[in-house]
């Protein structure tokens, strides 16, 4: 399990650094992007693990996102970079890409389906994956932004 956590954390860190570079995060902040993403993603991994807490993906994502948002706020004055610069790259590894993909696939197959039975099956896949995907996205974004608004004085003085 330790190997899985480390592998997951390293991949999340790499993904965060890469997406940080796309959004032109200052280079000195790459290390922080990677660190926050690795810790956040590992936290979600542990929260969802059946042997630890076995939480639902939506709740686990919410807690991990709040953790990422809080880390971004308190690291931002140290790194002299706005907290938002870390948020997106660090959150991205938690984006429910496969749910979105399956949801979109279900929708496409619904449109192409020729029988009522097939339509029902694919519509169920579209709705199931789509609802989970939306719930994860909304929870993730709101939980990550709340610390910025809660600790405004810290978040908006980071570049001072």
């Amino acid at each position: 399990m330790l190997f899985e956590i480390i592998k997951d954390a390293l991949l999340a860190a790499m993904a965060a650094i890469g997406f940080g570079s796309i959004s032109r995060v200052p280079r000195r902040s790459y290390i922080w992007c990677g660190l926050i993403a690795a810790l956040g993603h590992s936290a979600r991994f542990l929260l969802m693990d059946p042997d630890v807490l076995g939480m639902h993906i939506v709740a686990a994502t919410g807690i991990a996102s709040f953790l990422i948002g809080s880390m971004a706020v308190f690291i931002s004055p140290v790194a002299k970079t706005p907290a938002e610069a870390y948020l997106f790259p660090a959150l991205l590894p938690m984006i429910p890409g496969m749910y979105a993909y399956r949801s979109f696939g279900g929708l496409a197959m619904c449109l192409l389906g020729d029988t009522q039975e097939k339509f029902g099956v694919y519509f169920y896949r579209f709705a199931e994956n789509g609802f989970i995907c939306l719930a994860i996205l909304f929870t993730m974004v709101i939980c990550a932004i709340v610390p910025i608004f809660t600790f405004r004085s810290t978040a908006f003085r980071a570049t001072r």
């Binding site: 991949l11 790499m14 965060a16 650094i17 570079s21 796309i22 032109r24 993603h41 890409g97």
Partner: peptide, 24 residues
Amino acid sequence: CDKETPWVTLTLASLANASFCGIF
């Protein structure tokens, strides 16, 4: 002065997306 270094971004973005594939 706000210029990107295209090849660095390209390399990091490609590695990032490959990492995504690994995460999923």
